[in-house]
Amino acid sequence: MSALIASKPAVRLQPVRSEAAPPMPSPAANPGLAALRLFLRNPSGLLGSLILIGLLFAPQPGPPIYGADPFEIVGAPFQPPGGDPVLGTDYLGQDILAALLQGGRATLLVGFSAALITVVIGVTFGALAGFFGGRVDAALMKVTEFFQVLPTLLFAMVLVTLFGQKIAITTIAIGVVSWPPTARLTRAEFLRLRGLDFVKAARAAGAGPLYLIGRVILPNAAPPIVVSATLAIGTAVLFEGALSFLGLGDPNVMSWGLMIGQNRAYALEAWWTVLLPGAAIFLAVLGVSLVGDAVNDAVNPRLRKRS
């Protein structure tokens, strides 16, 4: 918010400068760069990015540096942290640190992939419904409502139960249950934008519906969708955690959710086995959430209107 207010005077000053320099003014020529600058000026966004980068890159060199297979049994079960291995062992005697490093990869991969599925389905439905309106809108929104009224976690559980506990199924299940809000958001943006003058102008110039949707309206509807996609990553990470917590994770792919789910029964005797992966999930969701918020501030349509 502070970044938003601080940047307002710049908006007022802008027309004066653009008169002085006939070529297109730099902020308008590169709105992405301006947004990035705004984003980087936002402390919570920076913190969020740092957390995410940390979590994203820790798993990558993890195995080579730490060199442990998360499924290997390295010693007696329930060794507390502080000894060897550093973060202790879980219910089977598996190395917690190795599992944390390797597990983050799967967890974040599920998060990003599921968010991608959410965005693809949601934007397609929302864009078509919002652009065409009428019967198309009614039909597509009925489908959306159908998915919206299903209890999401329950529906995901049913999907995983039916098709098997595989990480790919989990990802698809999460994507399939969480797209309706994105669809509704996209539809709202399209409904708002399709009546505006620049769209009418493009239509008058002979643009077809595909061009209008993809090249004219979507770029202008993008900011809120980008924000919701960022937050969808966090939701997906939590979803993966919840499914694994309920015992529906893929037992052959180490993830933070699986760690919590498998160790949950022993939480009272060995707190570290669930608290550490829990903290990792918490950090990941916090990071995603902060980034999403900062993106929201940076690409706010009110700032874009100056161009």
Binding site: L231, G234, T235, L238, G241, A242, F245, I260, N263, R264, A267, L268, W271, V274, L275, G278, A279, I281, F282, V285, L286, S289
Partner: peptide, 15 residues
């Protein structure tokens, strides 16, 4: 989201 994140942390401890 944040609330749910916290509850994932807390859930195993509250039987």
């Amino acid at each position: 989201l944040l609330g749910a994140g916290l509850s994932v942390l807390a859930a195993p401890l509250t039987a």
